[in-house]
């Protein structure tokens, strides 16, 4: 028993480190590819924590859907748009007060959420289940039963949502003969000051056309 507890704590610590390290990597990388890779780490850490909490099915889904589909999508788009673009991380802000305020807000949310949730969990002592009890060994069955009974409407509507999203994505990313949006009517703002992205022009332009989509 003791060993199990120790193992769980160790695993938890490792997972927490992976999660927070990955998150820092996501927000701290100049290169979007690095951000995406850090995101994979975070997602993997979250999957670990799911396993620790006996949500095996969700852990599997987490890895398959997030790491397998969503992050791949991110990377794909990064590649599509060109990997050679870096954001100047601490470039000029429009207003001086904005960045400190953002940090302050994020910290406040973290602290307050911690306080709030920890205070709440002290009152949660395994109150009776409203829908269905967990069953770690059969969690696919339990979740499936819930999905197709209590949550069947939500389930159907998410199906519709997915279809709509797919259609929307096709419409958006299609290269239209006639633009769906009249861009002349909505000009993109010129940023005052220097260009905040440094673009490494390819040395020999004819070699590899980076401007895939224009």
């Amino acid at each position: 028993m003791l060993a199990a507890v120790i193992v769980e704590r160790v695993v938890w610590a490792v997972a927490a480190m992976i999660i927070l390290g990955g998150a820092l990597g996501v927000i701290g990388s100049e290169n979007p590819v690095h951000s995406a890779l850090s995101l994979v780490a975070t997602l993997f850490g979250v999957a670990l924590m799911f396993v620790l909490q006996e949500a095996y099915f969700l852990a599997a889904i987490q890895v398959i859907v997030y790491a397998g589909a969503i992050v791949v999508l991110f990377v794909f788009v990064i590649m599509l748009l060109g990997v050679d673009r870096f954001e100047v991380l601490w470039g000029r802000e429009r207003a001086l007060w904005r960045r400190p305020l953002a940090v302050l807000a994020a910290v406040a949310i973290t602290v307050l959420a911690c306080v709030g949730m920890l205070a709440t969990t002290t009152e949660l002592t395994g109150a009776p289940s409203a829908t269905a009890r967990l069953d770690a060994d059969n969690d696919v069955m339990v979740i499936g039963r819930s999905l197709f009974t209590d949550y069947v409407w939500a389930f159907e509507i998410t199906g519709v949502l997915l279809t709509v999203a797919v259609v929307g994505a096709v419409v958006l990313s299609r290269r239209p003969t006639v633009s769906a949006i009249d861009w002349d009517e909505f000009p993109v703002d010129e940023v005052d000051g220097e260009d905040e992205f440094t673009i490494d022009e390819p040395q020999d332009a004819g070699d590899e056309p980076t401007e895939v989509a224009s």
């Binding site: 904005r98 305020l101 953002a102 807000a105 406040a108 949310i109 307050l112 959420a113 709030g116």
Partner: peptide, 14 residues
């Protein structure tokens, strides 16, 4: 940013 500040304030209130 507005949303975040608002969320922080709501959280703080609760």
């Amino acid at each position: 940013l507005g949303m975040a500040v608002g969320a922080a304030l709501v959280l703080g209130y609760f």
